[in-house]
Amino acid sequence: MSNNDSDSHTFDNTHADISVDACGLFCPEPVMLLHNKFRDMQAGDTLLMTATDPSTTRDVPKFCLFLGHDLVARDEQDGVYRYLLRKS
């Protein structure tokens, strides 16, 4: 597990181009946010999403698998899930 960084765009010393806060949202809203953000991103751009819904541990990897994006890293600390994704 990683410690939360002070920069909301950083995950394990990797800077994300976009940060999305899905804390407090429940399925399917976090994945809907991902779909909306990924539409405007360029290939190779990275996105850091934070969420509190445990279903994201299933939904985010499936989002990446089905759409061909990369799940670069993920962790959970104190009920907050973080995902670093890269648009393919």
Rank of each mutant, 00 (worst) to 15 (best):
M1K: 02
M1G: 09
S2Q: 03
N3R: 08
N3H: 03
N3E: 10
N3I: 07
N4V: 13
N4A: 12
D5M: 14
D5C: 09
D5A: 14
D5Q: 14
D7C: 15
H9S: 01
T10F: 00
T10M: 05
F11Q: 05
F11M: 15
F11S: 06
N13I: 12
T14N: 08
T14K: 13
T14F: 07
H15E: 11
H15F: 04
A16F: 09
A16H: 04
A16C: 09
D17W: 06
I18C: 01
I18H: 13
S19H: 11
V20E: 11
V20C: 11
V20Q: 11
D21L: 05
A22L: 04
A22Y: 02
L25M: 11
L25W: 00
F26Y: 10
F26D: 09
C27R: 15
P28A: 12
P30Q: 02
V31E: 04
V31H: 03
M32E: 05
M32P: 00
L33D: 10
H35S: 06
N36E: 02
K37Y: 03
K37E: 03
R39E: 05
R39T: 09
D40P: 02
M41Y: 09
M41D: 10
Q42R: 15
D45E: 13
T46L: 12
T46C: 06
L47F: 13
L47D: 05
L48C: 05
M49N: 08
T50G: 04
T50Q: 11
T50H: 11
T50W: 00
T52R: 09
T52S: 10
T52H: 00
D53P: 03
D53R: 14
D53F: 08
P54V: 08
S55G: 05
T56W: 00
T57C: 07
D59N: 12
V60S: 09
V60R: 08
P61R: 14
K62H: 13
K62R: 12
K62D: 06
F63E: 00
F63H: 02
F63P: 03
C64Y: 03
L65T: 12
L65F: 06
L65S: 13
F66D: 03
L67R: 15
L67C: 03
G68E: 05
G68I: 10
H69F: 08
H69R: 14
L71N: 10
V72W: 00
V72R: 13
V72K: 13
V72D: 00
A73K: 14
R74K: 13
D75G: 14
D75Y: 02
E76Q: 12
E76G: 02
Q77W: 04
Q77A: 07
D78T: 08
D78G: 10
D78K: 15
D78N: 15
G79P: 01
V80D: 00
V80C: 06
Y81I: 09
Y81L: 10
Y83C: 01
Y83L: 09
Y83Q: 06
L84Y: 02
L84M: 13
L84H: 02
L85M: 08
K87D: 00
S88F: 04
